[in-house]
Design a protein around this nucleic acid. Structure first.
Lengths: 160, 160
DNA sequence: ACCATAATGTTCCATATGGAACAACATTTC
DNA sequence: GAAATGTTGTTCCATATGGAACATTATGGT
């Protein structure tokens, strides 16, 4: 009798071991697991898309930024940021002031409302991170943190 | 004299330290650095979008899969996979055989041409991974690998 | 001062993406 | 074995996304 093809019959996770770029695949998978469910929730609960939330996140951690700064920090194209800025302005999550020293750019700042929203959203990310990183021991967490720091600084020198 | 706002004046990387979810942000940043430039190159050189390449990648590592399997493995919605299957079929990178035991599903296999393409593409990922992970010592690499394995297995039990 | 070059933010357009409804088939329940 | 329920793959549609060209302003070289 031929065995029927069902997910239960086979282990689809073998790709984690077979793939030629284990580190890349695992890091990417992990990033998706951490971030995508939260983005979905943000969209459902607050109506923000990814670009809009990234903008809010950047402004929540730096006192003022230009659209170009945000593009650099997030790696997203300027036009996406531009759209996000307009929508977030219209909802009152941020302020924009033209730069008197440079007529091309404008300084963006988060508003009180925007900060309140950020605080509600960041809780979701924290919960998800705790859930997933709970698998690690104290020592493993520290080790991962140290390694990530090293990689990110090494990488951001070329990215930013 | 008021200091002009330029990227050189300020350090945009402070967000790495200020953000409330350091692990999440770093892992996500790192994943993007590893993967996005390669996806761009794949699109430019071979005309495949992300969904299409993920499909090829899955089929390159498992002998046969249904569209639903691929959706499970990649976390993408079924309709994206469906579109990808049709385009990859039309270009000859994969074969489809209806499952005689279940009229709803069809088995997908990679073709020789598809495998050749995969081998060209995977080189790009390998190069990028080496470039970025080169910042780590032998010992750090091993440590990272072990931790990622643990996290991914822990996570995929809920994801797949 | 003038022209060439570059940077910022915007608009236009083509493609990518994912949710929802759907048709076909399979399974479960009675 | 009939009806309800679930699953697979597909289509439809609305939104998201990113490249390219553009207007405006700055900068650098002469």
């Amino acid at each position: 009798m031929p065995e029927k093809h069902t997910a239960e019959n086979r282990d689809l996770t073998v790709i984690f071991d077979r793939i030629e770029v284990r580190g890349t695949y695992r890091i990417s998978f992990l990033a998706n697991s951490l971030v995508l469910p939260v983005y979905d929730e943000i969209k459902r609960n607050f109506g923000l898309n990814r670009g809009e939330y990234l903008l809010l996140l950047c402004l929540a951690h730096l006192p003022q930024l230009t659209a170009q700064d945000v593009a650099n920090m997030t790696g997203r194209p300027r036009n996406s940021i531009s759209r996000a800025v307009h929508r977030m302005l219209s909802v009152g999550y941020l302020d924009r002031t033209p730069d008197p020293d440079d007529g091309r750019q404008a300084m963006l700042k988060i508003t009180r409302r925007g900060r309140e929203l950020h605080e509600r959203i960041i809780k979701l990310f924290i919960a998800r991170e705790n859930e997933i990183l709970a698998a690690l021991s104290e020592e493993e967490s520290a080790c991962l943190d140290r390694i990530l720091q090293k990689l990110v600084l090494h990488t951001s020198r070329e990215a930013l």
